[in-house]
Design a protein around this nucleic acid. Structure first.
Length: 569
RNA sequence: CGGGGUGUAGCGCAGCCAGGUUAGCGCGCCUGCUUUGGGAGCAGGAGGUCGCCGGUUCGAAUCCGGCCACCCCGACCA
């Protein structure tokens, strides 16, 4: 591949909208270009790097016994309606109609499509287990695409689906996929931390996320410092380090609190801590108000609330919605005597005594409130978010919060799709039973961005060898010198014979520009052919990762480069 | 969806508040000469519906309205 001919359109300056290293460098190094918000085109080098990541994924999936398929990107609505996700998905699903008015969506994932295929094949226990995967472009109309490839709307993902006759066999496959993912991350030079995760819209009983620790990660992770507990904050369990305070034990009392709608104001006015106040956050779900009660010093975790409500179709009550519910004393809503409104209570509110809450009457709060005596905390659910200082629910150790990039997620689905889509198998006795399923995703375009995020310096990308778009760049300094050009072409051909692709910088530019572009593009080895060829018959080779340079005799250069590559990170 | 910001040459930006010749700068691009081991020099040159539509005005990149696109923050404390 030649550097000229707009093959590698590098940019000297940082694109105005790039916020992260991977976003900036993938564009500046001429690997990709934006097409629309959260949608990117891959240029030759970017497409090569993506292919290398995807080939590692393919390799490990095949090694684990999975079979590759190619499913459609445009999905008919029928199976999605059958599974219930046509309704559950909300605006994140990109929907459209064809000329006949039939409804379709751009596949955000493919459980429905694959499960209906298996269902129609009416397998017997002899046909199972099976694990089918594809590596393909997905579309999710994200609320806010961010950080280039990191959170795109259109993105590349490997998605795999396994089908089993028993829970035990699903467990075995789950472990096999876990192992495959560990290998994939390792081969791509990514450190991972595996945590328990929410199953969200995919559903299922158990799931693990593969996280790459990073400050730009969008997920908050919780790890116990004493045991092996690790979880995504969106579903973690914790034990509070403190008990909700007893600010005013005793009888119920109404207090005039004019205009005090925040926890801070109320706690301040009552001369007590926020740990003594019950916080109420109002949501609207399916046109119905939902009052969520949590300890005053905590926030509502919307991901946990979504698990409880069984949908993510809810939002905090907006100003314009408040007037629709005249019975709600917004700002002063409390659990005592609150009728006709759906409620959710955080587990921490069970059995509290002597606490403060809204009086369901404007400008009034109640003090001395006691659960059971004054209200019943039902339904009870863990809907509050974790905080620094909370304790591990398993061992009581200190919990540590950090950030991570989710590159993979594996799920035990159970019967979530096989039942509604009627995917059954006949067992030994001829009885029909629903197939037990698992699903396993890994974001290949996100992994590409993550690799750049983890492997770069001020000058540019430092591709680990396994995912580098090409292993070697050859730079000729004297583009007018026939000997140098001839040597470069010969070396390129020799390396090609050894299966090593070359990016050949054939441009007639100042050396500095070519060196800087080579560092920016970041191929593992740079071979520089210049005047030393004529003076002492050598070419220089620089290892991008270490910055180390050495001179090789031109005759043995191809051998030495092959050897140097074996040693490169 | 709410709030904020931006949109001027391929990229990065100035000009806009206080409307007034041919709309500027840096990088990149083209031609020629010189140069060539870490972003060269000189000379010449090309490239713009100033996001789109409408309005105000003798006159609009600049003021006003609408729309679109992109970016940031938020989606949460009632």
């Amino acid at each position: 591949m030649r550097f000229s001919h707009v093959t590698v359109p590098t940019l000297r300056e940082k694109p105005a909208d790039a916020e992260t290293a991977s976003h900036e460098l993938l564009i500046r190094a001429g690997m990709m270009r934006p097409a629309a918000a959260g949608i990117y085109s891959f240029l030759p080098l970017g497409a090569l790097a993506l292919a290398r990541v995807e080939n590692i994924v393919r390799d490990e999936m095949n090694a684990a016994g999975a079979l590759e398929v190619a499913l459609p990107t445009l999905h008919p609505s029928e199976p999605w309606i059958q599974s219930g996700r046509w309704q559950a998905y909300g605006p994140e699903m990109m929907r459209m109609k064809d000329r006949q008015g039939r409804e379709f969506c751009l596949g955000p994932t493919a459980e429905e499509v694959i499960t209906s295929i298996i269902a129609r094949s009416a397998p017997s226990y002899r046909d199972l287990p099976i694990n089918l995967y594809q590596i393909q472009t997905k579309f999710r109309d994200e609320i806010r695409p961010r950080f280039g490839l990191m959170r795109g709307r259109e993105f590349r993902m490997k998605d795999a689906y396994s089908f089993h006759t028993s829970e035990e066999d699903l467990d075995r496959e789950f472990k096999a996929m876990y192992g495959a993912y560990v290998s994939i991350a390792k081969r791509c030079s990514l450190e991972t931390s595996v945590v328990e995760a929410a199953t969200g819209l995919i559903g299922g009983s158990e799931s693990s996320e593969f996280m790459v620790p990073s400050d730009i990660g969008e997920d908050v992770l919780v790890h116990c410092e004493s045991c092996d507990y690790g979880a995504n904050a969106e579903m973690e369990k914790h034990r509070p380090a403190i008990k909700m305070g007893e600010a005013a034990a005793g009888s119920l009392e109404e207090v005039h609190t004019p205009g005090m709608t925040s926890i801070e104001e109320v706690a301040g006015f009552m001369k007590t801590a926020q740990t003594s106040v019950i916080k109420c956050v109002l949501y609207v779900s399916g046109n119905e108000p939902v009052a969520v009660f949590v300890p005053g010093y905590r926030d509502v975790s919307e991901s946990k609330l979504a698990m409880h409500l069984g949908t993510d179709d809810f939002h905090p009550m907006r100003e314009d919605e408040i007037e629709r519910y005249p019975d709600l004393a917004v700002g002063f809503v409390g659990p005592v005597g609150l009728d006709g409104v759906k409620t959710v209570f955080d587990s921490e509110l069970k059995g509290v005594k002597g606490v403060i809450c809204g009086a369901n009457r404007s400008d009034y709060h109640l003090r001395g409130v006691e659960e059971e005596r004054d209200f019943n905390a039902e339904p009870l659910f863990d809907v509050a978010s974790v905080q620094e200082g909370d304790l591990c629910f398993k061992c009581g150790g200190a919990l540590k919060l950090s950030r991570g990039i989710e590159i993979g997620h594996i799920f035990k689905l159970g019967l979530k799709y096989s039942e509604p889509l009627n995917a059954v198998f006949s067992d030994k006795s001829g009885e029909l039973k629903p197939i037990i399923m698992g699903t396993y995703g890994i974001g290949t375009s996100r992994m590409l961005a993550t690799v750049v995020e983890q492997h770069h310096d001020e000058a540019g990308i430092k591709w680990p060898r396994a995912v580098a778009p090409l292993p070697v760049e050859i730079i000729v300094l004297g583009t007018e010198d026939a000997k140098q050009v001839e040597t470069a072409l010969k070396l390129q051909a020799d390396l090609k014979d050894r299966g090593l692709g070359v990016l050949y910088d054939d441009r007639d530019l100042s050396p500095g520009i070519k060196f800087n572009d080579a560092d920016l593009v970041g191929l593992p080895l740079q071979v520089v052919i210049g005047k030393k060829l004529a003076s002492d018959g050598t070419v220089d080779v620089k290892t991008r990762y270490t910055g180390l340079k050495s001179a090789f005799e031109v005759e043995s250069a191809a051998d030495m480069i092959t050897r140097a590559l074996d040693e490169a990170p």
